[in-house]
């Protein structure tokens, strides 16, 4: 009679959004197991709070916001300060784009991630992070400057 049971909704949400949430959590925590823990906790919040969404993009934005908040709290709690090279098991060891982003302070890294990986606008990022647009714009600009300096102008940002 109805289109989605609670269980079907859970499975659909996990399939639709895990990828984005894991990458977002990883961008803060720099650790695969920690990112997976953070994302699972975010999904647990979803079934606990049972928010209603206007559309699928709102659902994703809500999940990303919760994931980022949980990740930041985990980072504070563990007081980790990993070297950008340490936990990054990617194939192209010669490239330095990811380590450079990971070397940024969390407040710049998060915005760089949402802007360049998720293709969100400044307005959308402002809504997800609950920050004024001006603050998002300033941090994006500062993050770009820092990256340009680290990448020595090799890539267009």
């Amino acid at each position: 009679m109805y289109s989605l049971t609670g269980v079907e909704y859970i499975e659909k949400a996990v399939k639709a959004h895990s990828e984005s949430m894991l990458r977002a959590a990883y961008s803060i925590l720099k650790s695969v197991p920690d990112a997976e823990d953070a994302v699972q906790e975010a999904f647990l919040k979803l079934i606990e709070k049972r928010p209603c969404f206007g559309d699928a993009s709102h659902e994703k934005a809500w999940l990303l916001r919760v994931t980022l908040n949980i990740s930041k709290n985990m980072l504070k709690a563990s007081k980790k300060a990993l070297s950008a090279q340490e936990d990054i098991p990617y194939e192209d060891k010669d490239s330095n784009v990811l380590p450079c982003v990971m070397a940024l302070e969390e407040k710049y890294r998060t915005i760089i991630h949402l802007y360049y990986y998720e293709d969100y606008s400044i307005k959308e990022i402002s809504s997800i992070l609950n920050l004024p647009q001006a603050t998002v714009g300033t941090r994006l600009s500062r993050g770009r400057k820092l990256l340009k300096s680290m990448l020595k102008g090799e890539l267009d940002l």
Partner: peptide, 22 residues
């Protein structure tokens, strides 16, 4: 950035394990 971050591998059974957990 997308390519390098996309190369990070997470657990193959993550979605299945997460759905069961939930």
């Amino acid at each position: 950035y997308k390519k390098e971050l996309g190369n990070i591998s997470f657990s193959g059974s993550f979605e299945k394990d997460t759905a069961l957990l939930l």
